[in-house]
């Protein structure tokens, strides 16, 4: 399944406005505004001015919170998004409710304490984001993430992403039995997405610091059903 752009001109529009450019603008804007994210449970809340709101929307980071407040806009970042901005792009600070800053090791430990398989999920997220794919939650489709070629307003997501890891005994428990295969592929087919498996190979345990993430190896594989009936046969002929 290729890219499915939303309507005429969407592809041209996307080409003229590359995600990489938007992300680097977002990065500098966050740095210059000295942005602080407020850690709350597993999410992070971030206050945004008009410029930042525009960039977060265009980069597709976080969800804008709908409030009656006229002068300020808040965004809710997922754990992966927040950690990506703090650790990978180094453009926000994260503070707790006491306004105490958490460094990346502390935030890392916090995230893992909330979700055991955060390391491999984050590796998968940052792997795709660093290739300038737009990554959103896949929970609507029963997968870990969905990946878009550009902003979801312009294109349908192309991949439904499941993150697997051999080391953790396949931490998220997916695709261990054939029935789950059928289920997943049937669903992906009906929503026109290709199932993408990211196999994360951990080289060492990452319990205390995210620095070992660099040594993680990511392997990309698509899983597709093949229908032998659908082959284009130039001269359909059963000889006997």
């Amino acid at each position: 399944m290729g890219s499915r752009w939303k309507g005429k001109g969407a592809e041209v529009k996307a080409l003229a406005d590359p995600i990489s450019e938007i992300i680097s603008q977002l990065q500098s804007s966050l740095i210059s505004s000295n942005s602080k994210g407020l850690l709350s449970g597993t999410g992070v809340l971030l206050k945004a001015d008009a410029e930042l709101t525009d960039l977060l929307n265009r980069a597709c980071f976080g969800r804008p919170r709908v409030t009656s407040e006229k002068n300020e806009q808040w965004f809710q970042l997922s754990t992966e998004e927040a950690f990506y901005l703090q650790y990978s792009l180094n453009c926000i600070k994260i503070v707790d409710h006491d306004d105490t800053e958490l460094n990346s090791d502390e935030l890392w430990k916090h995230m893992i304490s909330r979700r055991e398989n955060f390391p491999i999920l984050f590796k998968a997220f940052s792997h795709l984001r660093s290739k300038n794919w737009v990554v959103r939650s896949g929970s609507q489709y029963g997968v870990d993430f969905v990946a878009y070629r550009h902003h979801p307003a312009l294109v349908h997501s192309q991949y439904a992403v499941l993150v697997l890891s051999a080391q953790d005994g396949n931490a998220n428990g997916r695709l261990k039995v054939w029935s789950d295969f059928h289920c997943t592929l049937r669903l992906c087919g009906s929503v026109a997405k290709t199932l993408l498996i990211l196999n994360i190979e951990e080289q060492q345990s990452c319990a205390t610091s995210p620095s070992c993430l660099d040594n993680y190896v990511v392997e990309e594989r698509t899983i597709t059903r093949w229908s032998p009936e659908q082959v284009k046969i130039n001269s359909y002929l059963i000889l006997y």
């Binding site: 590359p18 995600i19 698509t222 597709t224 093949w226």
Partner: peptide, 15 residues
């Protein structure tokens, strides 16, 4: 019968 492919891919780095 169900046939499956597990193809190694490399997602492009997008602009």
């Amino acid at each position: 019968l169900n046939f499956f492919s597990f193809n190694k891919v490399e997602l492009p780095i997008l602009p």
